[in-house]
Each structure stands twice: as C-alpha cells, then as structure tokens.
Amino acid sequence: MTTSPSPIAPPAPRERMLHVVQGEYAVVSEPGVVLTTILGSCVATCMWDPVAEVGGMNHFLLPGDASNGGESLKYGVNSMELLINGMLQRGAVRRRMQAKLFGGARVVPGLSDVGAQNAAFALDFLRLECIPCVGQSLGGDQARRIRFWPATGRVAQMLVETTETILEVERKRPAAAIRPQDPAAGSVELF
C-alpha cells in the first residue's frame, strides 16, 4: 500500500538541496535544507523528530543476496544506526522519531528482487525498534526522486523514467558485501 506524496515542485527560494547518494546518509538541524535522492531498488529512510526539528535520510542497499542473511543485514542495521545516532547527537529524542520509507523498486526485470529485500528489512527494522513508519512508497517498477524536509517530515516524490544511468547502477550492484562508509568499520582495538 503506498501513500501519495505531493508531486515535486521547484525548490523555494532560500532552500538548499543536499543530495544523498547510495551508501551514505545525512542529518540536518538547520532550517531551509532539503534532502534529495534518487532510488531504484535502494531504500531511503526519511526520519525526523518533529519537536527538535531534526531529521535525516539514509540511502542503503543490502549487499549480496538473501542467502547471506546476517552478513547483509548488518550493513542495513549500520546504515540505520548511523542515521539514528546522527539525529540523537543533534538533539533528537528517540521516542519522538518517526519515519517514512521510499524505494525498493524492481527496475530491472530478470534480476533478483533486491528492492523487496531492502524494503522488508527497513520495515522490519522500524517495527523492531518501535519507530513508527507513518508513510511509505515502496516497490513497483519505477525509479523515484524524492525530496525530504527534515524539520517537518514532509516528502515530495516523483516517479521517474528508468534511465540508462539508473539501469547501469542496478546491474552493477555488487554480489559481495559493499564496503562500509567508514574504512575503520569492523576494526578491533584493545587498549
């Protein structure tokens, strides 16, 4: 079941667009910043605290396939945790957080439905962590362009033509684990 976010409109004057690419996240507490991204099979979590007016977006893709279970999940969990921790550090309170989910499409017929896996993980994560998912637009076979206003939780979505650029990204999705954002990830240090 999908929601129907408002169609994309030109950015208002004095709004600054910040694009979030695959594998990254951004957290914002300044007014006038709009987070944007383009999604194929990836999922973006738009999360915000309406009281603190702090919000952020991640853009993740579980690496590999469903058969490696926990190996894939930990990267998804890490992406979510980076987003949540970033918001906490800017004054958000966990029990006030809300989220909306977008993406998880199957834009390349014939490839495994990784979009569905990404979407299922995100929904499970929010449910387990007791963060309400108050809106979503997941699945389908079209790419999405979304804009997220972190202070209010407003999202505008446009379904877009699946361009060659998007197809190329989808086909090149690595079978092995994606390198985490932090090169220190997984490191162990004894003091």
Binding site: K74, Y75, V77, N78, E81, P180, D182, A184, A185, G186, S187, V188, E189, L190, F191
Partner: peptide, 10 residues
C-alpha cells in the same frame, strides 16, 4: 574500557 570495536562488526 578495555577495547573498541567499530560497527558493523565482523
């Protein structure tokens, strides 16, 4: 603390 492990852990 005795040590530090960076997530995601192996």
């Amino acid at each position: 603390a005795t040590g530090w492990i960076v997530k995601p852990f192996q």
